[in-house]
């Protein structure tokens, strides 16, 4: 199991941009996962997607056109994924083909019920998929990894949590809108 975690972490690290953390037309969305403690029994996982100017991604309910942005959360056994906050997307398009989009920077936040404070330091993951569009659409999926925060540990400084670019190109089923990534939270 830990081999897989290390492999993913190395893969993410190898893909992380070395300098500027700004998405562009080549890779229009960067993603980041931050964990922080709320109190003794709850912590938060926040996925932030930074979208390049001129590009947009779709909301979880994309409307007539669009491919939904999805997040699958993986937390230690017995911890529980509570409610997930999605920002309200912007409505775009005409009445016959409205879509719901995010531009700029968007943060999706999951509230996790901690079963045992001894889980601090364990691994949490978020597998995130999206379609980013401008005059062309790119489908991406990333697997983000961080650790369960200790009780009392607040947000970690941004500079220590790099954004990563897309690590998987989802061909075929992904482009077809039947991404196997499921909306139901799973747990490891």
């Amino acid at each position: 199991m830990w081999f897989a975690i290390v492999a993913v972490a190395l893969l993410i690290a190898s893909k992380a941009p070395a300098r500027a953390q700004q998405p562009d037309d080549e890779e229009p969305v960067f993603a980041r996962l931050v964990a922080s403690a709320v109190n003794d029994t709850t912590y938060r996982l926040a996925v932030t997607l930074r979208v390049a100017p001129g590009w947009y991604i779709y909301g979880p309910e994309p409307g007539e056109a669009g491919l939904p942005t999805r997040v699958v959360w993986s937390v230690p056994v017995q911890d529980r994924v509570g409610h997930v906050d999605w920002p309200v997307p912007i409505r775009a398009g005409g009445s016959d083909a409205a879509s719901y989009e995010y531009r700029g920077e968007v943060t999706i936040m999951a509230h996790i019920i901690r079963a045992d404070a001894r889980h601090a330091g364990g691994t949490v993951r978020a597998e995130v998929s999206w379609a980013a569009c401008s005059n062309v659409c790119l489908v991406r999926r990333v697997r983000l990894v961080t650790v369960v925060p200790s009780v009392g540990q607040t947000d970690r400084p941004d500079e220590f949590i790099p954004f990563v670019t897309g690590i998987d190109y989802i061909a075929g089923v992904g482009l077809g809108g039947t991404d196997p990534v499921d909306a139901v939270p799973d747990r490891n």
Binding site: P62, L67, S99, A131, C133, C137
Partner: peptide
């Protein structure tokens, strides 16, 4: 193309 892809449509 794909039906979900606005620039495609």
């Amino acid at each position: 193309w794909a039906t979900w892809c606005a620039p495609c449509v």
